[in-house]
Structures are given as C-alpha cells and as structure tokens.
C-alpha cells in the first residue's frame, strides 16, 4: 500500500506534464470549461435573484455545493484523469500491458491521463468555494475533510461504473452516462430530492454523499455528520476496490470482451 502512495504522484505528474504539451489545446479546453462553469453560475445567480431560496437552500448554500462538486471534478480530472475513459481502456485491452508492470493496475489506470478541461473546473470551483461559499478560515480543516471524502466517493463511484466493462462491452457509454448523471444530481440543491430520487442519490449515484452530506457538515458541524461523510467514503472505497479486483480476476481468466 505504501508503494502506491510513493509512486502515484510521479505517475500523475507525468500525465499532467503530457497534458501541457499542446498549449493551444490545453488553453482552449480549460477556457471552454471556465466559460461553461461561469454560465452555470449566471443561471443559478438569476435563479436565486428571482426565487431567494428553495427548500431552505440559499444562494450561499448552492455556491458551496457548486464549489465542492467543481473542485472535486477538477481534482479528479487533473490527478486521476484516467477515470473518465476507464471503461474504454479496459475494453481495448490496455490492461494487458499494465498487468505486466510492477505497479498496481488501478493506480496506473487512474494516472494514465490528465484532463486539461479539469483545470477549468478546479479554478472556478476553488474561486466559488472560497469566495462565495460563506466559509470562514476556521472551517478550512472540515472543508478539507469534506472535499477529500467527496473526492474519494466520486472517484470510487466512477471507477465502479467503469468496472462494468470487465463484464460487458456496452458498459463504455453506460459508464459515462452514469458518471454524467452523478454529476447532474450533484449540481442541484439537495432539498429537491424525495422518494426514488432521494434513494438514488444516497446509493447508486452517490451525490448525497459527495456533496450533500459535506454541505450539511460544513453548515452544521457535528460528530454524526462527520462520521457519515468519512464512513461513506470508506464504504464506497471498499466496495469499489472489491468490484475492481473481481473484475480484474475475470479479465485475467480471459472472460472480458476486449477488442485486442
């Protein structure tokens, strides 16, 4: 375990350097995402100007939520960017080459790519988080905990979706769709969910744990809230690791429908 902690940063740094190679492309992608996120800010700004609050959520709460999810998507894309197309990588047989290397496969899969657009998410996310989220400096440690746990859950869920590729070819677009839905559900005030959607948000598409629980934690800190956030992170991480190893074992038995 210590091995991967030591070598992962180097792998990720290499991917980040590679993403800088085409300057124009990098700036275009990053800029595009900044514009994209800026637009959503405008929309929510208009919304709260007109409607003041929804289900107890005010503009500052929404800003906190958006800041969290954008920062999480940003860090994921920059440092763990391989998660985005992992299903495609599995289906194309890339794992073969990785299995022959001495480093853990999951780490290699995550570190093989860094997305330029994620920098746009990261920049706007941090600005919103720090500037508009209504957080004080004393909440920084708690915010960091919330962010880290949210990051773990987001990556765990996206990776678990991608692992479906170990079982079926159609997983490629399905995994991306699920990840997109997860982000969609993480971009709205939690108070709107009820019934089926609320269930989904706290299980399959864990927006509830990625952003909703951390927001609650930061607005009304309590031991219970902290336990929920950290506990959820551990549970999702463990589930994903189990699913990944099961999938990899299946892959090694030659049962995965690869192209290669």
């Amino acid at each position: 375990m210590g091995g991967i902690l030591a070598t992962y940063p180097a792998q990720a740094a290499a991917a980040i350097r590679a993403s800088f190679a085409d300057r124009t492309n990098f700036l275009l992608q990053m800029g595009g995402m900044v514009v994209n996120n800026g637009f959503f800010l405008i929309l929510w700004g208009l919304f709260f100007a007109g409607f003041k609050s929804v289900g107890g959520w005010r503009a500052a709460d929404m800003a906190l939520l958006l800041g969290l999810i954008m920062t999480i998507v940003g860090v994921s894309g920059v440092a763990f960017g391989g998660y985005r197309d992992m299903a495609a990588a599995i289906l194309s047989g890339e794992v073969d080459g990785l299995l022959t290397q001495p480093k853990p496969v999951l780490g290699r899969l995550l570190s093989r790519d860094s997305l330029p657009s994620a920098w746009g998410d990261l920049i706007v996310g941090l600005i919103i988080l720090i500037g508009l989220g209504g957080l004080g400096w004393r909440q920084a440690p708690l915010a960091l905990v919330g962010l880290s746990c949210g990051l773990v859950i987001y990556l765990a869920a996206a990776t678990a979706f991608a692992c479906l590729a170990f079982w079926a070819r159609g997983a490629r677009s399905f995994a991306r769709d699920l990840t997109d839905f997860m982000i969609l559900f993480s971009s709205y005030p939690g108070s709107i969910f009820s019934g089926v959607s609320k269930l989904a948000v706290y299980t399959l598409l864990p927006a509830g744990f990625i952003v909703l629980a951390p927001v609650k934690l930061l607005r009304a800190p309590s031991l219970g809230a902290l336990t929920l956030v950290v506990g959820a992170a551990l549970v999702y991480a463990l589930i994903t690791l189990a699913v990944f190893h099961l999938g990899l074992a299946r892959y090694r038995r030659g049962l995965t429908p690869t192209n290669g």
Binding site: G50, K52, V54, G55, F181, Y188, P189, S191, I192, S197
Partner: peptide, 26 residues
C-alpha cells in the same frame, strides 16, 4: 433515458419552488 432523468431532476426543482410559494419571489 438522459432526457427522462434530466426532466426528473428539473421538475423536482421546479415543483419544490412552486410548492413553497415564497412571498417576494417570482
């Protein structure tokens, strides 16, 4: 499927807003 999911989320938002009928808002 994406259409239906997006609709579900957006209509949940608007139902909540309409249901609350907060004074002084749109």
């Amino acid at each position: 499927i994406f259409y239906l999911v997006a609709l579900a989320v957006l209509s949940a938002l608007w139902s909540k807003v309409a249901g609350e009928r907060l004074p002084g808002t749109l």
